[in-house]
Simulated assay, not measured.
Amino acid sequence: MALNRIYTGKGLVITLVVGFVAVEAIIAAGFLSFVHFKTSANWATKSEQVLIELERMSGTVAGAETQQRGYLITGSDEYLPPYREAIDTLETQLRRIGSLTRSNSLQQDRVAFLATQVEQRGDEMDQAIATRRTKGLPFAKSVVSVNHQNRTMATIQEITDQIRDEENRALARHRADSEAWAFTTGSFAVAFFLLNAVVFTLCGLVMKLALSSQSQAERLLQSLRPSTVSAAR
């Protein structure tokens, strides 16, 4: 009976220790998996934000050109405030793109070059506006023609496409990583649940075995007592 209790107690202790270690390992692995999932998701979100800012910037450039063209054609000053606002907005958008891509040196170089081209394009449009104001539409058209030969807008479009393509590739990669880590995290959660069920089941079986052994021992003692009493008489 003593040996049964000892072995039963050891079995329960071993089961609890093994179960505890396994559960802690799964919790640690699940936590690390979740951290990787969050990191990949955050990188994907950054790439999405860069793409959004690029689209906004392209729209702002197009808006600035539209307002400048309206002024050149009509000479009306009502086009100038929205034009100036668009130019100021471009500076803010470029700073945002630069901030979002600061972890990628290649993208940083592209954004820096894009900023110089946008600034040059702004100078070209300002020059055409100043010429329209002082010399009239025919001279302004000549300035626009010369500026067109510089291919500044084409360069802006090319570098914007390069930044966009890089971010699209990064976005696809980060989304794939995020989905993979999400699956891994879910797998660890399921494993944790199943292992807990197994540990509790084993503990229950060990305790049931202990109670059964104790009950059998008590019945054996009770059956021996009358014989002992009779022998004494």
Rank of each mutant, 00 (worst) to 15 (best):
L224C: 04
Q214K: 05
T101S: 07
D177K: 06
N168V: 13
V190G: 13
T184Y: 12
P138E: 15
A170M: 04
V199G: 00
M57N: 07
E119V: 03
R225A: 09
Y83V: 03
L194H: 03
D123Q: 15
G63V: 11
R5P: 02
E55V: 00
Q222M: 12
R169I: 06
N42R: 12
A154T: 01
L12R: 14
A2L: 12
A231M: 12
I26R: 00
Q162E: 14
D123E: 15
A28T: 13
S223R: 06
I159M: 13
S76T: 09
V118C: 03
G122Q: 13
L224R: 04
V17F: 05
I52A: 07
A191W: 14
G186I: 07
V61I: 08
K38V: 15
A62L: 14
L220G: 14
T45E: 11
T228E: 15
Q157A: 00
L224I: 00
R233L: 13
Y71W: 05
F34P: 07
D161P: 03
K38H: 03
A180S: 08
V190W: 12
Q67W: 13
R132P: 01
R95V: 05
S213A: 10
T101E: 00
Q157K: 13
P82N: 09
G75V: 01
E55W: 02
S230W: 09
K135W: 06
R102M: 07
I87L: 05
T201V: 03
N42H: 11
N150Q: 14
F192K: 02
E119H: 00
L202V: 11
L220V: 02
L194F: 08
V118P: 04
A86I: 01
T116S: 09
T15Q: 12
F193M: 10
R164W: 05
H36N: 15
K38N: 02
R219G: 00
R56Q: 09
T134V: 13
R69A: 05
S215T: 02
E91W: 10
A25R: 01
V198R: 00
V111R: 10
I73G: 03
M207P: 08
E78L: 05
I129L: 08
A130G: 06
I156T: 04
N104M: 02
E124Y: 13
